[in-house]
Design a protein around this nucleic acid. Sequence first.
DNA 1: CCCATGTCCTGGTCGC
DNA 2: TGCGACCAGGACATGG
Length: 271
Amino acid sequence: MPELPEVEVCRLGISPHIIGQKVTKVIVRNAQLRWPIPEEVQLLTGQEVLAVDRRAKYLLIRFATGSLLLHLGMSGTLRVIEQATPVVKHDHFEVAFTNNKILRLNDTRRFGAVLWLADNKDSQGLLSKLGPEPLSDDFCHDYLFSHAQNRKVPIKTFLMNNHIVVGVGNIYANEALFLAGIHPTMQAGAISKRRYNTLTDIIKQVLNAAIKQGGTTLKDFTQADGRPGYFAQSLFVYGRAGQPCLVCKETLLEIRQSNRSSVFCPKCQQE
DNA sequence: CCCATGTCCTGGTCGC
DNA sequence: TGCGACCAGGACATGG
């Protein structure tokens, strides 16, 4: 369920159900995620949820003594459910609360993560090297342009680099480049300040629109309460290779960049 | 066999 | 020659 809007929608969905609640039980059914789930997660039994934050695609559930870090990988879903809900395949981890609700993680591919940051210390260094949040003021007009100077990497790959900016995954990188009229193979350092201004605005718009609409529906995404999102209906290029461009009718092309698929309109996106 | 929303890590290349 | 920045691609697990 992974791009930033889906994680943010998830955060918004679960927060009201768990903030202020105390943990009654932590169950690890399969600790083998991207990294083993540490024993310390049991320490949060009895503690109260103070807040649910997000950094990049990491969810951070705040407690007095530290934070529970959750990442959904490529196929993870988090849901708030009733106690009696049957356990299904790939339900690897859950936290039960005093209001009899359960926060349950299901992750088919197990690329997700559950870690404990004692005293909020980022011992794995997962959060320390991340670029700015795309929806923050740190991600301003000058930011992408100044960081792109002398970089030869294709703009599509540049946008997906978490050290540059977080939360722009394959879907929204494709969409933002289409809307900005930028060809995905252009070298990052060869793009003008003016086009970066446009691209920056569009990234914010696209992510905000997706959050507003509840996240993209991909086959394994469900919102915290189980309703699917529906932003996939408004995608211009992602998943539409071979189909006509919705703006000019030209057939959309697909290429691979850094082992990911890029879809673009050869007419609307000039090099 | 192919493909799939993420991201850490390795190893190669390049410029100073 | 060394060092660091940069970049491509592999790896992870499962299912369609």
